[in-house]
Amino acid sequence: MAQLFHRGANNIVKASLALVVILGGTAFYAYTQIARSSYLTNRYLERQQPVQFSHRHHVGDDGIDCRYCHTSVESGASAGIPPTQTCMNCHNQLWADSPYLEPVKASYRDNKPIKWERVHDLPGFAYFNHSIHVAKGVGCSTCHGQIDNMPSVYQENTLQMEWCLSCHRNPEQFIRPKSEIYNMDWKDSDLTADERNKLKTDYKIRSRELLTSCSTCHR
């Protein structure tokens, strides 16, 4: 029986096998990168809000503490969106006639809440509670970035599960003293590794197994 394939066909088979591996690998890598891209995670996407509210001005320039508006961050699951009255504490006098404030004044006048665009939206199957994170030494800027530099707030991190786990596996790399939770300029390098390990003990942070167990976040 005559040879069906030319002798060089062996090389073609080897090359195509290699190509399958290379192409497959590239495709998989591309998939992982696309899944993490801001196109899919909405990271760095600045949202247009109904009011031109600037965190950079109120936090950065005026030095107003996060908790002045986000009052329930230490006691509840949600950090709290301030009622319009909180805006009016200052803006009943300051810039009271500015057209930029009209949506706020209308909200106050008509007793209708302002419809803010949600920036950080976790999927419904993920349980998250602000108060426990704040109580265990996770600062605002660790997750939210330097809000005091954001004229309009964007999502600083992917909010993907691997990002949550990066801290739940090694919390000692990210925690800080209680007094620095609301400090926007805090750097993780401000404490040595030993000091952060001590904090982890002081805060009684649970074991890696418990922090990464499924039902910790999926309840």
């Binding site: 949600s78 999927p123 199957f125």
Partner: peptide, 11 residues
């Protein structure tokens, strides 16, 4: 469906 479940979140 699981991502945006038909339940109310805060606010």
């Amino acid at each position: 469906d699981m991502q945006d479940q038909p339940r109310y979140k805060q606010y």
